[in-house]
Amino acid sequence: MRDFEFWKMAVGVICTLGLYSVLYRETKVYRFFEHMFLGLAAGFSLVALWTETLKSVWWDKMVGQVDAEGKVTSMGYPLYILLLPIGLMAYFVFSKKSNWMSRIPIGIILGLWAGQQADNWIKTFWPQIYGSMKPIVPNTFDPIFVPGGAANIPNAVYVTQAVNNVIFLVTLLSVMSYFFFSFEIKSRFLKGTTTLGRWLLMIGFGAIFGSTVMTRFTLLIDRMYFVFIEFLKTNFFS
């Protein structure tokens, strides 16, 4: 008699193979697992809705909390109840006359998002702007080549570093120049810059591709490990 863990894993293996069947073609098997997947996911969202979100961030704050000895740990704030009617306004979206009301909760969510953007921009991009300011003239000519940019003298700017910094800046500026939309570019030099920008951008994308492939394959390897080693080999061949 196998234990619960075995059956849980067996069900998992069947589900995995069921979804993989789409690689052959869209069949009833795939459709079965797809709909089961969607149903379970929606069910879980509804469970998590209360247990993970509303209970702790809304209900508990609204009615307050008392610890095991009856001591009040947080007071209740009844005004939280007002968020319920505001949330309900979204449901007017199907009404022909009052569908504008759904924009109130949407407006609040978007407003809260929009208000954060300035601060968010500073924290994200301010260090990156600083990180792009690089010295482009060397202050020492000895030694000429330092592989990997490893410096022997603290704070020195080597020739290789200066060259690399120039390449860095050229890349940054030429790629940015590709994203100007409202200036009509007529000079041949600037046209060349935007083309160069696109090419350099492709180097960036190539690197992303290589790195991403690693993740994708690892995830497949992990699934194969799950099906063939953790399930098959451990349960049947050891």
Binding site: I129, Y130, S132, M133, K134, P135, I136, V137, L169, L173
Partner: peptide
Amino acid sequence: SVVVLGSLVTT
């Protein structure tokens, strides 16, 4: 402009 100016000052 800020990046270019900053690079020049740093240089």
